[in-house]
Design a protein around this nucleic acid. Structure first.
Lengths: 208, 208
DNA sequence: ATAGTCAGTGAACAGTCGTACTCTCAATTG
DNA sequence: CAATTGAGAGTACGACTGTTCACTGACTAT
């Protein structure tokens, strides 16, 4: 075996990441379908043709950005939901978690919110698939709770989807809210969640 | 006074509408920020320069499309909510109303969902403003109901916003769902609304 | 040491784009 | 009637786009 550092591979990954970073920055003020291939390479300081060494086109770059953004979030929500403690407490913690992540990586969430219904098919589908995965994870976490006794699995998935959609809406609202307006968004998001939780508590009151 | 038919004005409005229609059709598979001015005029069969007689640019055209799409919906929701009848019944009717409108004018709703978080600032703001108006209308309609006795106005606005956001999500889901999958979307949307309604019924159970 | 691999270069291609001009000629006005 | 208006046509401009091709030269495997 050799002590090869793999300089080649490392450098390639480095420029690839540079392309992703530059694209994400450019996408803060426009959508993917209007993002030019040359625009990205220019921002990195690389010849336009070098782009093809990493991606087939801007659409493929978009899909990679989806993975980068949402791939790292898996399990995190489940971890929060699995925490012990008061229901109200967990709820607040979940909202806070979102707020912190959005504040830490605004561009990533902006991108997701923007391209969730955007004009580039493959990217849209990638986001939809990831969000559905999240909904299933949340549903699985909910199923483990005693409050979910007697619930139809399909209804749990419905609830999970409701939470996920709300998460996306909240993230987007946080981005749209200027600095200082975030507190109000968080307050409303918490009340919304409380209302949903109330509905959940009385879901089985009626006859199915 | 004259019996002028105003042929000039009529023709202008006609081509203006043709531009809007053509743009809406083109926007089904791309987003506004990538829509070319020439692309639209080509679809209409008009010289590119003629575009400026009607809009400052594609952004202004987008704002006009927002007005056209959401302007006609005002009051409709209020009318549904004002209907007498069982709460469950009204709920189903509301979902059905959305489903019918989305099926009747898919392109309009696709446009709204796509540009709500899109890359064109003025359009995004126009949509946000209209949706907030809807939320306020819904809140006002809810306030008139006996179930809302004792509710904080801010909480009613929260609930109205929840309904509106849910409406947008449902519309988008209907568009993404292929033909035949719509029934499932409607079913889930109804269950979501029922859960929210349940939460609403028990909102005042706890101490504020 | 040598041959091969491959990330990145640079020039050139045919298009498309937005916008500024001038011009036309039918509808309107007085 | 004649004078004016204004929606749309036509041309031209420079700038930008995605993609192709042959190429260099540092790294890699043998």
């Amino acid at each position: 075996m050799s002590h090869t550092t793999g300089i080649r591979q490392v450098q390639k990954q480095k420029t690839r990441q540079a392309l992703l970073d530059a694209a994400l920055r450019l996408l803060e003020h426009q959508s993917l379908s209007s993002l030019g291939l040359r625009e990205v390479t220019r921002a990195v300081g690389v010849a336009p043709t070098a782009f093809y060494r990493h991606f087939d086109g801007t659409a493929a770059l978009g899909v990679a950005l989806v993975e980068e953004t949402l791939g790292s979030l898996h399990g995190m929500i489940g971890a929060v939901l699995a925490e012990t403690g008061d229901s109200e407490e967990r709820l607040d913690r979940g909202v806070e978690l979102i707020a912190r992540h959005v504040a830490a990586q605004p561009a990533h969430f902006r991108f997701i919110a923007r391209e969730q219904h955007g004009g580039v098919g493959p990217v849209r589908e990638a986001i939809t698939a990831q969000l559905r995965l999240f909904a299933e994870e949340v549903a699985a976490a909910l199923a483990a709770e005693p409050d979910s006794a007697g619930w139809d699995p399909a209804d749990l998935l419905m609830l999970g989807g409701l939470y996920v959609d709300h998460m996306v809406i909240t993230a987007s609202a946080l981005l749209d809210a200027g600095p200082g307006g975030e507190e109000e968004v968080v307050r409303v998001a918490r009340r919304r969640l409380r209302l949903v939780t109330l509905g959940r508590a009385h879901w089985l009151d009626e006859a199915p």
